[in-house]
Design a protein around this nucleic acid. Structure first.
Lengths: 202, 202
DNA sequence: CTGGCCATACCGACTGGTCGGTATCGGGTA
DNA sequence: TACCCGATACCGACCAGTCGGTATGGCCAG
């Protein structure tokens, strides 16, 4: 266990390759990026890349897996930590904005190129996404049922709106912009909670 | 002027080509679609395509131009037609959802492949988008300044959220789903207006 | 200690096939 | 005939992936 190859740790070479791939895929798209460009940017050779990965598509898979596993773990943790639904929703949104802002390239690739995965990966990822979506929605639904949130708008629409902003975030978010991810997340949460009939902060 | 080549009218062949291109680009991406696939789907030949277009990229340009020009015209018309800001915001959102639902493929391509346009087209399109964004935002800002909308959330955030949902719409919207575009648009408008402190309908 | 052996990590020229785009010609219409 | 629309054959560039080979380092027998 001296070598950090366990679990999620990537060997330095693998990590350099994936990092380069993410940046290039985000900038030029999956099909628009050549394997040669990736290996040049990663300062490795084609042989090295194909030593670690069996196909270009594996890189996509690696990117998605790391992104989704983080988000799902965060969601479960947040729901376990908070009792009040307004707190929960706020925490979910702030966390989502923060992790997305920290991984803009990954998210951009995810949003734009998801459908390029082969059928079985697609199904798996759709299932994960669905679980995220439905977990989020049930938080809203339960709070509506117990009268904490206004029931006028459908929970489905709320979730669609909330996830919509986050997925579009890579298009407009700039790390050097005036608003920190934390503030951005809270502003979005303010708005969403206002739409659910909850006043700003408790 | 007997031939309908004027203004936005496309000759039958051109139209078939663009239609096929939109569908394929939406399904497989710009780089993932070959010119041969386009001409096969359009039931024309490569010669015909390159007779009307000088490059594959021209097809992207054509798609964007038609989408954006419609949206900009709608926006200007809607703002001219409505005096009350709540009505204006609702009308903008309903219209946006309806036109987007009617052109899911175009929007999907637009959102995903915009950056593949060359530098000058990009600049032009960014300017148009910016104008849309800022026009929308100023409607919200003015209503906040005159006390019609709650000033607690920044107008910028509201616009980002509203346009976020619409751009993501191609990912989840299904024409055969339970909700009509009109109803969807109104639900989104309900939520956005609630977030701005305006009760449902006037 | 040392020398032979093997596994893992990595190299980069090469290939089979594909793709965007072009050159050229036929055939219908005026 | 003249001209435009479209068909077909073709080209040069490029790309994902391969494959024969090298380098490094650990390990075990002598």
């Amino acid at each position: 266990m001296a070598t950090p190859t366990a679990a999620d740790e990537l060997s330095p070479v693998r990590e350099r390759i994936v990092r380069a791939a993410v940046k290039l895929f985000a900038a030029k798209g999956f099909d628009g990026t050549t394997v040669q460009e990736i290996v040049t940017a990663a300062e490795v050779t084609k042989g090295a890349l194909y030593h670690y990965y069996t196909a270009k598509e594996d890189l996509l898979y690696e990117i998605y897996r790391s992104l989704i596993s983080i988000q799902m773990a965060d969601l479960d943790r947040i729901i376990a930590e908070h009792a009040d639904p307004a707190d929960t929703v706020r925490a979910i949104l702030v966390n989502l904005v923060e992790t997305t802002a920290a991984r803009v390239d990954e998210t951009a690739v995810f949003v734009r190129e998801m459908q390029k995965l082969d059928a079985e990966c697609m199904t798996a990822f759709r299932a994960e996404r669905r679980r995220y979506h439905e977990t989020f929605r049930s938080v809203v639904e339960q709070a509506q049922a117990t009268g904490r949130f206004s029931p006028t708008v459908s929970a489905e629409t709320v979730v669609l709106i909330a996830l919509g902003v986050v997925n579009q975030l890579p298009t407009w978010y700039r790390p050097d912009g005036p608003k920190s991810p934390d503030r951005l997340g809270n502003e979005i949460a303010d708005f969403v909670l206002a739409g659910l009939g909850v006043g700003p902060s408790a």
